[in-house]
Simulated scan of single mutants.
Amino acid sequence: MTKTQLNQHLTNYTQAIEWISNLERFGVVPELQRIRFLLKELGNPETEVKFIHVAGTNGKGSTCAYLAHVLAQCGYGVGLFTSPNIGKFTNRIRFNEEALKS
């Protein structure tokens, strides 16, 4: 999907959430083309940001919660994204242990 197509398709928060939810229902294709496009559009912020990526089968949520808490207590600004969400979509995104406001 090009930037123009994405802008025409997703004109508000509700449409964006619906689009993301449909991706999950049908399965996300494991490729990097879309994320590379997004990162380029955002000015490649990943080259300037320090991050920890936690992967594996079990314990990711607990591990990330512990890391986020420790790093926040040490004075770091900590963003945390978890999936799936419980309740509403914005519960997935936290900054300094507070949920994103919708």
Rank of each mutant, 00 (worst) to 15 (best):
K3M: 09
K3V: 07
Q5S: 04
Q5I: 04
L6E: 00
L6D: 07
N7W: 06
Q8F: 08
H9F: 11
H9S: 09
Y13F: 15
Y13L: 09
Q15F: 05
W19R: 12
S21C: 08
S21G: 07
N22F: 02
F26P: 04
V28E: 02
V29E: 00
V29A: 03
E31A: 06
E31T: 08
R34V: 00
R34A: 06
R34Y: 01
I35F: 06
I35H: 04
F37I: 04
L39Q: 07
E41T: 01
G43C: 09
G43I: 01
N44A: 04
E46F: 04
T47D: 02
V49L: 14
K50R: 15
F51D: 00
I52L: 13
I52M: 10
I52R: 12
H53K: 05
H53E: 01
V54H: 07
V54I: 14
G56Y: 00
G56P: 01
T57C: 10
T57V: 13
N58P: 07
K60M: 10
G61Y: 03
S62E: 02
T63C: 14
A65P: 07
Y66E: 03
A68M: 00
A68W: 00
A68Y: 00
A72H: 13
A72K: 14
Q73M: 13
C74M: 14
Y76C: 03
G79I: 06
L80E: 01
F81M: 05
F81N: 04
T82Y: 11
T82P: 01
T82Q: 01
P84C: 10
N85C: 08
G87R: 15
G87S: 12
K88L: 11
F89R: 03
T90D: 08
N91F: 09
R92A: 05
N96F: 13
E97T: 05
E97K: 13
E98Q: 15
E98I: 15
